[in-house]
Nucleic acid binder design. Sequence first.
DNA 1: ACGTGATGTTATGTATATATAACATTGAGT
DNA 2: ACTCAATGTTATATATACATAACATCACGT
Lengths: 70, 70
Amino acid sequence: MAKGRVVNDIRTLRFLAGEMTQAELGEKIGLTRQTVAAIEQGKYSPSLEAAFRIAQIFGKPLEEVFRWEE
Amino acid sequence: MAKGRVVNDIRTLRFLAGEMTQAELGEKIGLTRQTVAAIEQGKYSPSLEAAFRIAQIFGKPLEEVFRWEE
DNA sequence: ACGTGATGTTATGTATATATAACATTGAGT
DNA sequence: ACTCAATGTTATATATACATAACATCACGT
């Protein structure tokens, strides 16, 4: 799997969701706070399952949370 | 990561795309035919990158190709 | 009947996502 | 100044996605 990367708006969405913490988000979807932090910072991109769950928490379609940049 | 699974319409989309073969799809996105087959059959769900690429090939938004079933 | 392309499948290895634990830093409140 | 919650970060381990190679089956055309 080559070129292109996934970016996300998790930080902003947490902020808009009343300062939801990384740990809180992690609890809701079954990920640790360290994993949430890494995903949020783009150190690696989440599994499709994790991406769906995160989007669901914020009540947004997946493609409004994660975007593919060529 | 627990409950719920990802389902997809790849088989149908390949058919609609003029009988595109698993190997052809694999070439276009940089996956092997075996991996395409496994994803298509739901043996495991793709990475977010792979999901974005596959959706892009079929000219569909990701959520029309992959769905989250609780 | 034969050959061939598409798919299924399985085994083994590598890369990457995620968990866990530990420690550091930063910022807000008191 | 002190505490404490939130976040950053790093090391090590496990789970899962993906590659590669090999072999089997199944349909289709000839």
